[in-house]
Design a protein around this nucleic acid. Structure first.
Lengths: 199, 199
DNA sequence: GAATCTTCTTCGCATTTGGCAAGAAATCAA
DNA sequence: TTGATTTCTTGCCAAATGCGAAGAAGATTC
């Protein structure tokens, strides 16, 4: 797959969708990001290191995972474009991360280093507000997912994912999706079979 | 139970623990909060309303819950003092909340209305940084809990809660704790029996 | 193209969890 | 105190999930 060079337009559009503002303001923010590409399986962040960059994912798929005490790998997030990919805790608290960020496919990213992020937060109120909205939206998403883990059955979570992010089923192995849903690949396979019969 | 009138000192101490700063700065922030008490079962926030206040819980216990499609009530958070109690999504995005916040015991709160919060964010950099840290910590906590839901067994989650927040078992019905752990009260009862035998 | 590796499904069985109901124990209210 | 309500535990059985292993299908590498 070939990833063409592109302008910052995807970044601008996403910033505006998260935090409505004039296009010129959004462009100034977007211009602070630099383009980067990843090959399949490349790591963006590794356990134990302090996260020094914020990322915007323009194309491709990335997962966040860690190892449990038995050495099994547990995926707790799958990022699909367009979205921001951040380890908020490590990035802003400057502590070593507990997670690995790995490209599941070839990816196109836009990155901004921590220092520049901070400098812009202080210098530009719009940038600061945008950063705040990033935190708020991350919070909203995490809470919604946690409520779903408590309240919904595995099949309901599968159906919801199929509805909200159908594209990941084309690009991400089911084993990883199963882990993200909090079940084994065996169980997901069963759920898919029964789900297909109902429809 | 009698809740004595108190100074802002608990608020000051908690702000400093979250975001290190000189005591005089923390005091200025804390002074913006007003004291409020709740009787048992009183609601702080109800589904459908926009959350207009941020709360600091000085004493007592509060739960966040919602109803699932079958009308069952699902508790997804239990707040124990000292801590901030916020519906970040509703408060900062100004959208109707999906959750109910209810006092499980008599409570002492410190509250600050949304407008004053915003005004202070703009006027005081320290207040703004404190608010940012609130968002970041909430994020960290939510993610840790979500990872635990994926990775850990119900018994492991129970053991972790017993270790990190033993006090809630003295003040919160097991039925609610079970819901928070993502299991039924029946299952929690079994886990407790088996857990006690091991120890 | 052939060999290798990964992914996905399926099977059988054990374990965990849920749902319902009953009853004991504790708490609350009059 | 007394009666009513809530909380907690337990038993029984059904459903959901995990585990290990095996094999088919697909993808990757050389």
């Amino acid at each position: 797959m070939h990833i063409p060079e592109q302008s910052h337009s995807a970044v601008v559009a996403f910033i505006q969708s998260m935090m409505p503002m004039p296009v010129d303001k959004a462009s100034i923010i977007a211009a602070q990001f630099e383009r980067k590409t990843l090959v399949k399986h490349e790591f963006v962040l590794q356990e134990g290191k302090v996260c020094n960059e914020s990322y915007f994912l323009e194309s491709g798929y990335i997962r966040a995972f860690a190892f449990d005490p038995d050495g099994n790998d547990v995926t707790f997030n799958i990022f699909s474009p367009p979205s921001f990919v951040n380890d908020i805790s490590s990035l802003f608290r400057r502590v070593p991360t507990k997670e690995n960020l790995q490209a599941l496919t070839e990816c196109a990213l836009w990155t901004i280093p921590y220092e520049r992020l901070q400098a812009n937060f202080h210098a530009m109120p719009e940038f600061r507000e945008f950063g705040r909205m990033m935190l708020i939206m991350s919070n909203t998403n995490l809470k919604d997912r946690m409520i779903s883990m408590i309240r919904d059955t595995a099949e309901e979570r599968y159906a919801a994912l199929l509805h909200t992010k159908p594209d990941i089923f084309q690009h991400v192995p089911l084993k990883i999706i199963a882990s993200y849903l909090g079940i084994t690949d065996t169980s997901l396979s069963r759920i898919r079979r029964e789900f297909a019969q109902k429809s």
